[in-house]
Every structure is written in C-alpha cells, then in structure tokens.
Nucleic acid binder design. Structure first.
Lengths: 129, 129
DNA sequence: TATATACTTTCCCCTTAGGGTAGAGTAAAG
DNA sequence: CTTTACTCTACCCTAAGGGGAAAGTATATA
C-alpha cells in the first residue's frame, strides 16, 4: 500500500510516516519505477506501535529501542521494564518540578489583589534581588 | 559594563544575554568604536527579572509581556495576575496529562514480571490493535 | 613596546519531532 | 485525454538557546 493508506491505518500523518522512513525508524520498500514508498502490514503494525509509544511520551530514540526489543524474539521482559521504569522516573521528576512551580505561582497570585491599583506582589517577586 | 559582567550579575550565560539582545528583549547600547555591548544596572535588573520569570516557566513572549507591565508605572495588578493565572492553568493541564501518563505506564510496569522470559505485557499493550 | 591572554563580535550549524509549502512527477478515474 | 488525487524531494520554520570558528578588541605582563 502507499503512504497515504499506511498513514491512515496507523493514525499518523503522512509527514510523520515519511519522517520515520527518513530517519530509518520504519523503512519501507520503494517502488523503483514510481519512487513511491510501499508499506506492508508489518510496517503498519510498527507504525502503530510507535504511535502508541509516542503517546506514552517515549522519545523517538526510546521508540527505536522499544521497537528493536519488540522485534527481538529473545529479548527479556526485564529489558523492557527497565526502560519503562526510567520513563516513569523521568515523569515523576517533571511532576515534582511542575508542582513546585505551581505552588510558587499560586502563592504569588493569591497575594496579588488583582485590582486596578499598580501594586503587584508578583512583579515585586520577579524584580527582587 | 560588558556582556560578561552583565551575564555574571544576572546569572545567565553570555549566549542567553546576547540572544535577548538579538530578539530585542533587552537591548543595550553598543559602543561604536569597539562594537561591544554596554550594559547598565537597569538592563541587568531586567535580565534578572527575565531569568526569574523563565524559571517560573514563562515563555520568552510572556516574559516580554511581563517586562512591559513591569516597566509601565500605570499598569494594574489585574493585568499581571491574569497572565499568572493563565500560566497556572497551563501548568495544571500539563500536570493532569503527566499524571494520566504515569498511571498508565505504572500499571503496565506493575504487570510486567521484569524477568528473563520474553513475555512482556508492556510490549503487548504497545502492539495491540 | 611587543606579546600573551582574556574578552567580545558575527556567523553558521545543531538540537525535537515533525509542519507547511512549492514544484514536479505518477496513478487512477471519468 | 484530461482532471483529480496522490506522492516525491527540497527547502524553510518552530523555542530557546548551545557549540564552535574566525576575527577583532582590551588588558596585563615581560
């Protein structure tokens, strides 16, 4: 099938599918006469796999790693779990940062009257030495 | 003072300070004979202000807005509070997304034995139709 | 004064993960 | 045979700078 159908089946944009071909993530055969990429079901399955992994916040490099584990019949579940736990830990760290940030901003906002007067604790804090 | 000192005083890198000059965020005088940028205390104060706002996750465009409010003696605290509350709401939305993601990944990981066998619910989920 | 060292300048490429568009070629339908 | 739909490559764009080259400027030392 052509790229349009592969994109539709995998719920990705054509641009994305072409990008994955260019970086060697999912490389289909290329019709020699037309130059069109030709996808088969297996490649569509990989595209779907990557699409899901991307939604789980895995980077392209991590997707590459997961995909190679996915294709390796001898891989252990230990290897996959390790990557997943690392991702969870990254997410936890991001969560903590965002929570701290939210607390500080929320504190500033609650101290700001938000009226028509110029006095503003938010700007005061930002301009503090 | 030259850019190196301004960077040191504002706890930013020279690259960053130069970038802010290029995009017109903090534009110092430029010595006509040497071509060196010349910062004064007020500009350093703005750099510090921006540095803090960036730490609070405000984008460059938002910093530009906050900076103009900061410089406007007639601005109301309402205007500043509005931007801050929007930022908080953006952060909340990011927090929710990350929490959902964490839950799903954590569920997958907890169902994965993580041993030397190939069976892996994580990959199963990623390759599900 | 000459030189060594430190500082600064502009310029260009690089990062993530594609998006947008142009111009040209190919395939399928009427 | 023409129109329409599809695909190709190639180029520039994103946010917020980082890295480094080549060249000019300023300052400290011999």
């Amino acid at each position: 099938m052509n790229i349009g159908k592969a994109a539709k089946l995998s719920n990705l944009t054509i641009k994305t599918v072409r990008y994955y071909a260019n970086i060697g993530l999912v490389k289909p055969e290329q019709n020699t006469s037309s130059g069109y990429r030709e996808y088969n079901d297996e490649e569509v399955a990989k595209l779907k796999f990557i699409g899901k992994a991307r939604k789980f916040d895995f980077s392209i490099d991590e997707c590459k790693e997961l995909l190679s584990l996915y294709e390796d019949k001898n891989r252990t579940s230990k290897e996959v779990k390790k990557i997943t736990l690392e991702k969870i830990s990254q997410i936890d760290s991001k969560l903590n940062d965002l929570k701290d940030l939210r607390n500080e901003l929320s504190f500033l906002a609650s101290n700001c009257h938000g009226d028509d007067k110029p006095n503003c604790p938010i700007l005061d804090e930002l301009s503090k030495n």
